[in-house]
Amino acid sequence: MNETRQILEDSVNRLFGDRLDWDALTRIEDSGFPRQLWDEVVDQGIHKVLASEDAGGMGAGWGEAYAVLRACGRHAVPLPVAEASIAEWLAAQAGCVLPEGVPGLLTSTLDGNAVAGDSLVLDGARTPWGREAAYLVGVAARGSAAELIVADPAGLEITAEDNLGRDPRDTLSGRARVTARHALPLPADCVRWLGALARSAQIAGGGAAGLDLALQYAAERSQFGRPLAAFQAIQHYLADLAGTVAAVDTISLAACEALDARGMASDGRNARFEIAAAKCRASEAVEKLTRLSHQVHGAIGFTYEYGLHFVTRRLWAWRAEFGGAGEWGEYLGREAVAVGGDGVWPLITA
């Protein structure tokens, strides 16, 4: 394995594994934003793997950041680490440095008309952890070009809303003050693609957590005088689950590495192909990942107390966020039809 990715994976898994047991996740759901844990993330620079060295980051690529994103899925991390990673990468592409504090990533492309001078007008802009945001980051379309917008959220009307994972998915409306604008050498819809990539990696992590919990439970729980793991039907569920997890893991990591190698801006075959494949496969896999990990657990997995739901509820949310299997499948289907039957394989192997 890529050595940097391995080191990151070990350290991030250690931090979140130590801090986020089920008791902690329950407390956070009751009491809100885990400020102390966010400070630890910031101290360790976990959100800045993709930030440039000038911005105090690692200057690493998505192939390395994958370790962080997957770990966020695995440990059901209730923090905007994926969103911050995207924001930092955008800033690195634009050659700017973001402010300190929790970022509010504007997940939809901003209409060019929404930005005028130092004014940004939002009308129900979906923003993960918007209520905690110290600043906003978004991408605006400027003709065929794109612009990175940084804004101050003071004065915006915030409608608090949570997704199924009870992570904040707030909507922001009103007028915000733009604090920085930078030309961005990326397509204007890049946040949707990057979000889809990040959620794929998180689904890979959430699926891995479901598998590990199911394996552990199947070994501990006995019925008919033997552990569940001794039953062939259960073994086959676990094998199917493991393969499904591995498939999401593989394509999500491959998409991250493709983005590092080919970018997403060039004409022709670039990393959009792998990103679409990753989110399509990951979203489609959620049905099996959640169904089998719950089935192995029986009724206990359906309780709040046990805590399998911390990952499975997030998997159900992430499946749809930044587009589901239908949207990304349709993108790939259009690409396939455009090149025709004979052109599909060259597209895959390009």
């Binding site: 399509c280 496969r281 349709e330 790939l332 289907g333």
Partner: peptide, 20 residues
């Protein structure tokens, strides 16, 4: 669109399996 989505999902699967 629905048919394209199903075809695209097969392309995604093939791409995934090829990587594996």
């Amino acid at each position: 669109s629905a048919t394209l989505a199903r075809i695209g999902a097969q392309v995604a699967w093939a791409t995934t399996l090829r990587n594996m």
